[in-house]
Every structure is written in C-alpha cells, then in structure tokens.
Nucleic acid binder design. Structure first.
Length: 304
DNA sequence: AAAGGTTACAACCGCCTAAGG
DNA sequence: CCCTTAGGCGGTTGTAACCTT
C-alpha cells in the first residue's frame, strides 16, 4: 500500500533551497510558528512540499544549530550513544541539542565509519565503542563491557523514572566542560538562524551572477542589521521576520529549538558514562564496579 | 591546469506511528 | 475499531567542493 509521496504533485520544487526560499520559510515560521507543515507551502507561497519545508527548518534553519566539525567530546558521546542506542539518530541527537540527527548521521556515515574501517585494517578487530580509546578486547571483556553498558543504562533509566525532584538539572559537573551538560538551555535568539542564513547567502553570492548576488546581499544586510538593530526595516518580506527576530516573541524559537538534554532526561549516571571516556576500556576500567548481571537478565529488565 | 577520485552534506524517499475523524 | 494522513525517522542519493595525480 503505502502513501504516495507528498512531493509528487505537479509544480512542487525539489533540490537545493535558495536563499530566497529560506527567507520566506523563516519569515513564515517566525510569524506563525513551526508545526502545521502541511499549511506552510500553501500559505507562504513556497513551491515546496510540507516535508521539504520541515526538513529544511529542522536540519538547517532552526535556531541553535551548531555547524562545523565535531569536537572530541561530541565524537565520544556519539560513539557511546551509538553503541547503546544503535542507529537511532534522533535519539542520539537529543543528547546533542546543537546537532541535528541528519548531521550526526552524516558524520557517523563519513567520519566514523572511515575511522572504523581504518581500525579494522590496523587491528583486525571491531571496536565496540569509544574508538579513540579502543584497544583490542578479548571475548570476555567484550561481554563484560556490554553488561556494564546495559546496567548503567538501566540505572539511569531507573533514576529518570523515579527521581522525585530534578535537582540535578544544571548541576555542574567537572567532566562536562563547555558542553550543554552543565548549563541551562541557552536562550536561543534568532541570531543563530540569522547567522545560518547570512552565511548561506554569502556562499551563494560567491557563486552567483552579479544581479542576483546583489539582491541576496540586500537580504544579508537586512538580516544582519536586524540581528543587531531592530529598527531597520523597509517593509520587505524579511522585515516582517525581522520585527520578530529581536522581539520577545523569539521565545517561539526557543520553544521550537530542541530542549536541552537536562530538560528532557534526568541525567547523572548515564551522563557520567557518556561523557567520561575513561569509565571503561580506554582509560582505566578497573574502577568501574561491573555488576554481576547476566546479559539476558539485564537486557530483559531494561528493554521490557 | 586538467582530469579523475574522494569526501561531505543537503535533500529526498519510503516506511512507520500516532492522532483525529 | 478502522481508515486516513501529518509528522517523524533512518537509509540512501545527488552533487558541489576538495584533493590527488
């Protein structure tokens, strides 16, 4: 059976988004808020399908998205989470509020897999997780480590479910450096998105003929101006967005941007496990109290 | 400098799920 | 309940940018 693709309709544009489309989408969402994606193409005048709009927003235009290379800490976190959760990129991404699932997935499929292959060639053994700390393990160690993983996840889950007061929220932790783990969710301003778009527009200008580049530059100026000063507006579509960009209504985007890890999950043990790359394997794993728990029991209790 | 190969990532596709009628 | 469908997710593809020869 299956549904017909939503983008099969005649006249629906595909392919890379232009800066103009981005601006239209951002302006619309600024005004009406995200959600009701179905209505966006019709109401905003975009010749895109709803799905395309949603993806563009969540993966690229949404405020608070961090781009660029991943830090070692992020990499380790991803490795640990991938070992625990598998290819559930959305779940993994929820632990990295500034990264999108698409980003993480891409990063995994390019960088990490390459790394994995290289290690396979060097050592001839598959690492379980924590590439950077990887050392070949004998079978027993493997199993033991998996048991540890399961048990820690189980404890974390238990804490998450039964902890009464989330006092751990924003509790500072030495092993968590600059990452979001110790800070409240930053109040996302529209500037992040402005940066996204202006960067994109700048890139576009570089490779676009003069005329279109000029108009794009106009948009860039508008966006940048607004990021700094809300008074500049000339009535164009961007200015509609601009009025919101610096206003208190930006809370709209704060709401929409991914909640921080702390907001969504009470963390303590799992946090330790995820961020502490020395908790086993690579560092000195001997200080971990590996529970004497059979794999079957543990996994059964955890996943049922 | 040009051609061919590789990498990175934005975007699309199709399946799944949950909500609403 | 059943059906429909919007939204979400993971896998995959297309292509621009970069690198190597």
């Amino acid at each position: 059976m299956g549904r017909p693709p939503c983008c099969d309709k005649f006249g629906v544009k595909k392919g890379p988004w232009t800066p103009e489309e981005d601006i239209i989408l951002v302006s619309y969402i600024q005004e009406h808020g995200p959600g009701n994606w179905k209505a966006i193409p019709t109401n905003s005048g975009l010749s895109r399908c709803s799905k395309s709009c949603r993806l563009r927003w969540t993966n690229y235009l949404r405020p608070g998205i961090k781009r660029g290379s991943f830090t070692d800490q992020e990499e380790n976190l991803i490795i640990h989470l991938q070992a625990l959760l598998g290819n559930r990129w959305a779940a993994i991404a929820s632990y990295l509020p500034e990264r999108t699932d698409n980003d993480i997935k891409n990063y995994w499929n390019t960088h990490m897999k390459k790394k994995l292959r290289r290690m396979e060639n060097e050592d001839g053994i598959l690492p379980a997780s924590g590439f950077s700390n990887y050392k070949p393990m004998v079978k027993g160690q493997w199993e033991r480590r998996l048991q540890t993983d399961i048990n820690m996840a189980k404890q974390a889950l238990h804490e998450a479910l039964y902890m009464e007061k989330p006092s751990f929220l924003y509790e500072s932790k030495p092993s968590c450096s600059s990452h979001s783990c110790s800070t409240p969710p930053s109040s996302t301003t529209y500037a992040s998105s402005t940066e996204n778009i202006s960067r994109l527009l700048e890139n576009w200008i570089r490779k676009t003929p003069k005329n279109s580049a000029k108009s794009a530059q106009h948009h860039v100026n508008e966006l940048v101006n607004v990021g700094a000063d809300s008074t500049s507006s000339d009535g164009t579509i961007t200015s509609a967005a601009n009025n919101h960009m610096v206003s208190p209504e930006t809370s709209l985007f704060q709401v929409d941007s991914k909640p921080s890890l702390e907001e969504r999950f009470p963390l303590s043990l799992i946090e330790t496990w995820l961020f502490d790359e020395n908790c086993y394997g690579g560092g000195n794993g001997s200080n971990i109290n590996v529970p004497d728990l059979s794999l079957d029991d543990a996994s059964h209790e955890l996943f049922i």
